[in-house]
Amino acid sequence: MIARFDYIAAVILFSIGLYALVVKPNLIKKLIGLNIIETSVYLFLIASGDVRLGIYTNQWAASNVIDNPQRAVQGLEPMINPIPSALVLTAIVVSVCVTAIALSVVVKLYQHYGTLDAREIASLKG
């Protein structure tokens, strides 16, 4: 349970974000929920590429990753997987784009309908 704490935190964040995305009628709150979901996905991806020293051996725990990059390059020291981190960097930028466009659409919706409530907007016409 403790060893998988990052995954569990990601799942809880995902549930909170999905709750906000589905239940809340306010469009801004829906966007906040979407961002929380994205954050949980980042957490899950980075945790899946992480190195946790000392889970298995004491000798592994005693090794230091950062102080000796030469040994890490030679494969003698653990290094984290760089690919999830790189993908998350890409995903953050895409999330910023999605949030910006969605916010501008919300601004236009508010200016047109005069409300941010999704139920009212769905019930109104034109």
Partner: peptide, 20 residues
């Protein structure tokens, strides 16, 4: 520029309701 876009938005004039 995103800051500019969101800060300076003033809205458009309301369309006429009577034209529908």
């Amino acid at each position: 520029s995103l800051y500019y876009a969101f800060v300076e938005y003033e809205g458009e004039p309301k369309p006429d309701k009577e034209t529908e």
